[in-house]
Amino acid sequence: MAKNISTFEIFWVFSSITLIASLGILFIWVPTDANLGISQKIFYLHVPSAILGMISIAIVAFLSILYLLNTEKKKWDDLAYSFSEVGMVFLTIALISGSLWSKPAWGVWWTWEPKLTLTLVLWFIYVAYLMMRSYMSGSGNEAKFGSVVALIGAIDAPLIYYATELWRSAHPGAVVGPNAESGALDERMFFGLIASFIALSFMFIYFVSNRYFLRSTETRMNFIVRKLN
């Protein structure tokens, strides 16, 4: 096979560099939280992975609709599938890191508060999407049913973000995005969050591009084999 630098390798290099840089920024330059202490550093892992997990389901829903509008374009469906799998990986990390932060900060591993409950629902939506696609694969209906599931998830995602506003919650109010209170986050902490978000986004893109390469090649190969037969 020809030895040339692929897109994957570029993303891999980018994500490695930014990850190491962000870890340096987070643990050397960004100050420790006055109330929560060192465990607050989980924040820089927890928040970006949750955001990526939530954005991802919206992208899956959007791509699903694109595909349903023109079912000739199998690539949208392949891309939707790739986003769903990687999105689930990041949401899983958000849930686990959240639980590991909640124990020292709140005193419990898990509690049925709105933001947590809705996030768990989103996680199950990812599970349902992937399970449905694997069980129904080849039936021709998988993308249609998948898009319905993804749409429910895309409704759930903003509810998660606004949960602290809409219901009583144990979560602190939003510290980033349109619902954030100004001054809720120390400036250097905000910079640390951005650095971490960029690094994890590169990783996210790296995973999606890898997954998409795999999925689309499989699709093409299935097509060729079908033709041959």
Binding site: S39, I42, I96
Partner: peptide
């Protein structure tokens, strides 16, 4: 502190694990 280490460690294990699964699947393909 141990929670912090655990959180980052688990995240890295998941990242590397997923990356490994992907690369193996690509090799098979």
């Amino acid at each position: 502190m141990e929670f912090l280490v655990a959180a980052y460690l688990i995240a890295w294990v998941i990242f590397f694990g997923y990356s490994f699964i992907l690369s193996r699947k690509i090799k098979d393909l």
